[in-house]
Amino acid sequence: MLIKSRRASSISENDVTPENLYHDRRDVLKKLGFLGAGALLSSSKSYAGGLDFFSSKDEGFVTKALQFKQDALAEGEILTPEKKIITHNNFYEFGTQKQQPAELSQSFKVNPWQLSISGEVDNPLTLDYDDLFSMFPLEERIYRLRCVEAWSMVIPWIGFSLQALLKKASPNSKAKYVAFETLYDPEQMPGQKSRRIGGGIKYPYVEGLRLDEAMNPLTLMSVGLYGKTLPPQNGAPIRLVVPWKYGFKSIKSIVGIKLVKRIPKTTWNILAPNEYGFYANVNPEVDHPRWSQASERRIAKGGLFAKNRIATLPFNGYGEEVAHLYKGMNLRKYY
């Protein structure tokens, strides 16, 4: 695979390209016949945000350009600026405040990496760092991400479908659920070491899906965003993206995927079962006990006066693709 590295401090074209041009420009190239030319277009440092103060000491995490098949932005939607996507993160392993993951994760080591697929499968396998980017053709998926805290973003992810990965492992007939686990490494993840930084959730972070949810074509294993590999604060080197569920289901920095018979434990459900269910489908009808889920603030460009409150859609607007998975289920009970 083609990997171009840049030093964190070097400015690239992309740093000076507004998000709206990012896509227009690529369309032009596509028409000129440069299909899959993503690698030519984007490579830049992971934005260091608050780290700028320390930039003399810390160069920041270096992301690499990826080759991938491009996706189109849906009508009427605007991409959330890259800078916001990589500086506004819930990743308690690197701190509970939104800007902390971007500040505390820049020395995170993603290579070497091992992701194992095990449990009720005929063909258990382990992917190393390079496999994550080369085992499957990469494609861009522009998805809405709806956080349980009632804000949302539109993110151009890059990855491959979880379905493809699971098929490779070939689940056996006992497999009913898929359990995911984040890396546990307190030396690298200060939130796992210190309760003060990590917010007192149980580590390692674990999540789960029903097998049919995992096999849905929308369910993505993401290895990049905005044309490049993921920065650590967004879950490098590989994370799950389940766009019709609240963001906390989309577990980051995954080391283990296990096919299991029974419903697996999930981190937020362990902490507060009355607030966070196993399913966690985006549902404007079912409020979080402490705030409404009927609407959300879409984080895009714009400061304090941005009018960004919009109605929340059932299944985050992906009902056509996924509502059939929950036919006949009482979604108030299985929230």
């Binding site: 916001k84 506004h88 939104k98 304090l304």
Partner: peptide
């Protein structure tokens, strides 16, 4: 915050 310089979500 008005200038959108106060983190991802001012």
């Amino acid at each position: 915050a008005i200038a959108d310089e106060l983190g991802g979500d001012p």
